[in-house]
């Protein structure tokens, strides 16, 4: 069974570490997705679902985000069933309501793509590919096309169902 799914591809070669993707992600997942200023200044700051890391010498950068693995470690390890993989879209999601903040997914994710322990929210967050938007907010915000939205065909493998 194959399916066409969305993927954000990072061309880290052209990541310039501006962090606008991260900001856009925060805003998109906030109560005010249309206003950066309101999103960032009203109440507590929204949690970004992805991040940008710089190399130790500060010369290169890397977009860190969920790769939407086909056989995701976070889903396997999740004790609460909050982490699931959507069969149709191939997107791995963490249900904020169900998450108990054990950080199992954090230690399982080989990409280091799950945000949570440092936020003080007691919940794990990860990229949901902004499925309701035409483009993921980070892709739309990247000024240097270091993030590209691709639609790829994948061979579906059945994993844990939600």
């Amino acid at each position: 069974m194959t399916a066409v799914v969305r993927r954000v591809e990072a061309q880290d070669e052209y990541c310039m570490g501006c962090g606008l993707c991260r900001l856009a992600c925060q805003v998109a997942h906030s109560a005010y997705p249309l206003s950066i200023v309101k999103a960032m200044k009203t109440g507590s700051r929204p949690v970004p679902r992805m991040s940008v890391e710089s190399s130790a010498d500060g010369m290169s950068f890397r977009s860190v985000r969920c790769l939407q693995c086909e056989d995701p470690e976070c889903v396997k390890i999740c004790i609460s069933g909050a982490a699931t993989r959507d069969e149709e879209t191939g997107v791995v999601l963490i249900d904020e309501q169900k998450c108990v903040g054990c950080w199992s997914c954090v230690i399982a994710c080989p990409e280091g793509a799950i945000i949570g322990p440092g936020t003080g929210r007691g919940k794990a967050y990860k990229c949901d590919l902004c499925l309701e938007r035409e483009f993921p907010a980070c892709v739309a915000a990247c000024p240097n096309r270091a993030l590209i939205l691709r639609e790829v065909e994948v061979v579906e493998s059945t994993t844990r169902e939600g």
Binding site: Y14, M16, G17, G58, M59, S60, F61, N144
Partner: peptide, 11 residues
């Protein structure tokens, strides 16, 4: 390299 990467040659 920190600055040169700001010009994505595709763009």
């Amino acid at each position: 390299p920190r600055l040169a990467r700001r010009l994505n040659p595709d763009i």
